[in-house]
Design a protein around this nucleic acid. Structure first.
Lengths: 234, 234
DNA sequence: CGCAGATATATTGCATACAATAATTGCATC
DNA sequence: GATGCAATTATTGTATGCAATATATCTGCG
C-alpha cells in the first residue's frame, strides 16, 4: 500500500483532468489563458500524452477551446453563449425539480437542508459561496438518478462558473440562498409546478442580476480606441 | 497536392472519430462490441495515438464505454438509461420548439418541408428512415442557434440510435412522419404551447411504441422462473 | 473430466522522439 | 522608425517503444 490509489479510473489521466478542471473553475486559470502541453506536463509530473488526453476531455466538456496547431486555451464563451447556456440549464433543471417534487427521501432532505445552511454560513466568502451555490444544483441533479441529466447539469453548472467569471458582477451573490430554500420547500411539498416555476425564475434572476456586459468584454481595439482618442492618437 | 486535405480540423484524429462514430451509428459496430486500439489503427492507417484520442472523445459523448486497462467497447445503455435519456431529450427539445415557434424563416420552413418529404419517400428503407428521422430533430436544434442546446440534442439523438438498436422493435417506424409534419405546422403557426406538447407526445410515443423490453433484456433467472413454475420446479 | 496455477500472448498505459506547423526574433531595406 | 523577409525558437501532431495489466493457453494434479 505504497500510495493512495484513490485515483481510480484511467489512472493519472483522470488526475490531470481533475487538476486542470479545478484550476479553471477556481479561476486560477482565467478564461482565455493559454494551456501549453509541456509546461503543464512538466508542472504536474506527467508526459504530454496525458495532458493532451485531459485537454481533449476538457474541450468536449466545453471548458477549453482547442484550435488545431494552435493549442488549447481556457474557454471564453461570449455573452450570448452565456445567456443561451442559462436557457439550456433552465430547461434541464426544470426536469430535475419536476422529477424530484414530492419524491425526496428524508435523507435527501437532510442533505439539502444542511447544504443550504452551509451556504448561509459561507455568505461572506465570495469564492466558497459561489462553489456551494453551484453544488446545490448538481446535488439536486444527482438525486434524480438520471445519468444523462446528471452529466449535462454538471457540465452546464461548471461552465456557468466561466460565464460568471467573465461577465458576473463582483458583488452579486449569484444564487440567493433564500431562493434555494424556497425551492427545497416546494419540492418537499410536492408541488412540481411551483418548483418548476421557482427554478425558472431562479436561473432567470441570475442572468438579469449577475450577467451584465463588462468593459473587458469588448476587444482590445475597442478598449484602446477610447484611450487613443483621449491622448489624441489614432 | 498529394492527397486531398479535405479533412481539416484536428487533422486525422477528427477523421478517425467520425469514422468510428458513423460505424457505430450505422450499427456496423453493435453495442458491446470491443474496440481494440491497434486493430482499428491498423485498419484506418493511423497509429494508436490517434485512435485513443478518438475513443476518448467518443466516450465523452457517451457512445463508447472506456474501462481502465480493459479497453473500449461500444456503449450498451440499459433500458432504464434509455428511458431517462428520452426524458432528457424531451426537456431539451421542448426548449427547441419553444424557441423556434413563430420564428422560422421561409428558408428554414422550406428546408424542413423538404426533409419531411424525403422522410416520406424513404419510408420503406428502414435504415435510411431511421437516420432521416434523427436528422429532423438535429435540424430543428440547429436552427435555434443555441450552441449548448445544439450539442446536447445532437449527442442525445446519436445515443438514441444506440437505444433503439438495442431495444427498438424491428418494424416500428420510430418517428411517424405525420408527427413531424404536425410539429412543423404548429411551429409555423407560432403556437409554442402546442408545439411543446406535440414534441413531448412525439418523444413519448417513441418510448412506448418502440421501446419495449425484449426477451433477451430480462435476465436469465426471470426468464427461467416462468418455465420452472410450468414444470413444477423451484 | 474439472480445475488451480503457471506460462505465454495480447492489449492497454505512458513516455519519448521526431516531423510539421506556428510564433518570434533579427536583420536588411526603404 | 516602420516594414517585409529570413532564420530561429517554441509548440503541436503523430508514430513508436517499453512497461504494466489483463486475457488466453497450457499444463499437472486431484
Amino acid at each position: 500500500m505504497a500510495k493512495t490509489v484513490g485515483e481510480s479510473g484511467r489512472g493519472r489521466s483522470q488526475a490531470v483532468h481533475r487538476a486542470l478542471k479545478r484550476a479553471i473553475l477556481d479561476q486560477a486559470l482565467s478564461p482565455g489563458a493559454k494551456l501549453p502541453e509541456d509546461s503543464i506536463g512538466e508542472r504536474l509530473g506527467v508526459s504530454r500524452t496525458l495532458v493532451r488526453e485531459a485537454l481533449v476531455r476538457l474541450s468536449e466538456e466545453g471548458l477549453v477551446d482547442l484550435r488545431p496547431n494552435k493549442g488549447a486555451t481556457v474557454a471564453r464563451p461570449t455573452l450570448e453563449e452565456g445567456r443561451n447556456l442559462f436557457l439550456t440549464r433552465a430547461a434541464l433543471e426544470r426536469l430535475v425539480v419536476e422529477t424530484l417534487a414530492g419524491r425526496l427521501t428524508p435523507d435527501q432532505i437532510e442533505t439539502l437542508s444542511a447544504h443550504i445552511e452551509a451556504e448561509d454560513a459561507a455568505k461572506k466568502e465570495h469564492a466558497t459561496s459561489i462553489r456551494l451555490a453551484g453544488e446545490f444544483h448538481t446535488l439536486l441533479a444527482q438525486m434524480t438518478n438520471n445519468a444523462s441529466l446528471i452529466r449535462y447539469v454538471n457540465e452546464l453548472v461548471a461552465r456557468s462558473s466561466l460565464i460568471l467569471a467573465l461577465y458576473g458582477r463582483p458583488h452579486s451573490s449569484e444564487c440567493a440562498v433564500s431562493e434555494h430554500q424556497e425551492l427545497l420547500d416546494s419540492l418537499i411539498a410536492g408541488n412540481a409546478d411551483v418548483a418548476s416555476k421557482l427554478m425558472t425564475h431562479h436561473l432567470d434572476s441570475i442572468t438579469t442580476r449577475a450577467l451584465l456586459p463588462r468593459e473587458d468584454d469588448r476587444n482590445i481595439k475597442d478598449v484602446l480606441s477610447a484611450y487613443a482618442a483621449a491622448e489624441g492618437l489614432a
